[in-house]
Amino acid sequence: MTQTPITLAPRAALLVVDVQKGFDDPSFWGPRNNPAAEDNIAALMDAWRESGRPVVLVRHASQPGSVLAPDHPGHAFKDLVEKRRHESLVVTKTVNSAFYGTPDLAGWLAAEGIAQVVVAGIQTNMCVETTARMAGNLGFDVLVPLDATHTFDLAGPAGLALTADQLATATAVNLQGGGFARVVTTPELLSAASGAGGRAA
Results as ranks from 00 to 15, higher is better:
F152E: 07
P54W: 12
Q116T: 02
P64H: 02
G74P: 05
S66R: 00
K78R: 05
G74L: 03
E129A: 14
S51Y: 00
D71A: 11
N40V: 04
A43P: 15
A69S: 08
N137K: 08
P145V: 01
A148V: 06
T151P: 07
L167M: 09
L138A: 12
F140K: 12
K93N: 15
V128D: 06
T163P: 02
V58G: 09
Q63F: 05
K78V: 01
A98M: 02
Q116C: 07
T151D: 09
G139Y: 15
A168C: 08
E87Y: 12
G107H: 13
V90F: 10
L154Q: 02
G65D: 05
L154F: 02
P70C: 08
G101K: 06
E38F: 14
A164T: 11
E50I: 01
E112D: 11
P157H: 10
H150G: 01
A132S: 15
V119T: 15
T94G: 13
T124G: 15
H75M: 03
T92E: 15
D39Y: 01
D104V: 01
R85G: 14
L162I: 00
G136F: 12
T131E: 01
I41C: 05
E50K: 09
T124C: 13
G121K: 05
R53E: 06
R133M: 07
N125T: 11
L146E: 15
F77C: 01
V67G: 00
V144K: 06
V81M: 12
Q116V: 04
R133W: 12
A164I: 09
V119Y: 14
V144L: 13
G113I: 09
E87V: 13
G139E: 15
D104F: 02
G113W: 12
N96Q: 09
L80Y: 10
T151I: 09
T92L: 05
G65C: 04
A37P: 10
T124A: 14
R133L: 12
L160R: 15
W108T: 11
E87Q: 15
G136D: 14
I41R: 07
H72E: 14
H60L: 10
R133C: 07
D104I: 02
A69P: 03
K83E: 13
L44Y: 13
A164L: 12
R49P: 01
T163M: 00
T169Q: 15
A161P: 11
M126R: 08
A42L: 11
H75S: 03
P70G: 06
A61E: 05
G136K: 09
A37T: 12
N40A: 02
T149L: 10
A47M: 01
G101M: 02
K93C: 13
N137D: 12
L160A: 14
L162T: 07
A61K: 03
D147M: 05
V142K: 04
N125Q: 15
D153K: 00
H86Y: 05
L154W: 01
R133T: 09
Q123W: 03
G121M: 07
G113S: 10
A47T: 08
L68V: 00
P70E: 11
E112N: 12
A170W: 00
